[in-house]
Amino acid sequence: MKHKKHVQGKRKPSHPLKPHHPSKITKSTPTKGSNGPKSKSSSSSTYSPRPIIPFTPTSSLLLIGEGDFSFTNSLITGTPPHISPSTTITTTTNDTEPVTVEKYPHSEETIKVLKSQEHKVLFSIDITKKLPKSLSTNKYNCIIFNFPHVGGLSTHLDRQIRSNQELILSFFKNCIPLLSTDGGIDDGSGNIVITLFTGKPYDDWNLKELAKSVGLECIRSFKFDATIYEGYKHVRTIGFRDREGDWKGEERGARSFVFKVKDDGKHKKKGGNKKGSDKNKGNSNKKNGKGNGKDSDDDDDDE
């Protein structure tokens, strides 16, 4: 099989904090049923359509920016639950407990349930600042930040993009030291998972470039399916407002991106020079219908 020569592989990545137009994520989405080179129809026999959960029932989890804690609660109340009864979840929010209950009145009962099952519910955790010892002295198999957003700090689009990029960079930097040395979904070190809505302005945040700038690589991405998390409802940073009661963020298109720390020894086995490395990357991506061989973290697991 002939492989197309990818000129884009020689292009230098932009500065991680520079908005990128158009988004690579948007570009990488092929048209279903297409006979073009990006069609994934040839790999359907090896591709599983089942929803992907980026952790196991016994994973040690740290959840950041949980809002009303409905996602945390869905992990233990689903049928069946996603987390083993013997597993303790550490879940956090940036707000104080009174502010959380004021923003999301229904969260009060959820918080009681989580605490009654001895899960760690932590308030006033600002991921952009130095973390307290209650977090920094532990290690986690998986650290999850669903739909990070700084809120409406500015109506200027570029400023909003930059503010959210800075939030994500701080999150990455603070969480890398908290990752375990094992327990990741690839049998390697722990993973960081970020879920974002698809489309603008989220595609312009350059999530993968931000990760690269702090020594992380994206090992896979997949559609976020909110329906597999029973009882989960997406809430806004500003809290619940009556006039927006019918706003259902969980029904919007979204993707989850799984990251791990680079240089764990696996990449060095693929070749000593860039050309050889690219060749091997192209071969290793055939199972996902991807043979473009630029960077493994540019390949999406599903569309």
Rank of each mutant, 00 (worst) to 15 (best):
P98C: 11
S70T: 05
K120P: 02
C142D: 04
E109H: 11
G65C: 02
H106D: 12
T137R: 11
V121C: 08
G78Q: 01
S134Q: 14
F69A: 00
K130S: 15
S86V: 03
E97K: 10
T137P: 01
L75T: 01
I111F: 06
F69S: 00
N141C: 09
V113L: 15
T128R: 14
K103I: 07
K130A: 14
L75Q: 05
G65H: 02
D95L: 13
N141G: 06
P81S: 09
T77S: 08
T137Q: 13
E97F: 05
T88K: 15
I144L: 14
I143G: 08
P81K: 08
P132R: 10
H119G: 09
I125P: 07
I89M: 05
K133W: 03
I76V: 14
P132L: 15
H82V: 07
P132D: 12
T72D: 04
F145V: 05
K129F: 10
F145T: 03
D95K: 04
T72R: 00
K129P: 09
K112E: 13
I143D: 07
P81N: 05
L62K: 06
H106I: 11
Q117V: 13
K112T: 11
P80V: 07
E108I: 11
H119C: 10
I89C: 10
S116N: 13
D126V: 10
T79V: 08
S107T: 12
G65M: 03
T90F: 04
D68I: 03
S107E: 07
G65S: 06
I144T: 04
T88V: 14
L62F: 01
E97I: 09
V113S: 12
N73F: 06
V99Q: 15
L61T: 02
N73T: 10
Q117D: 09
L62R: 06
I89K: 06
P105I: 13
V101T: 13
T88I: 15
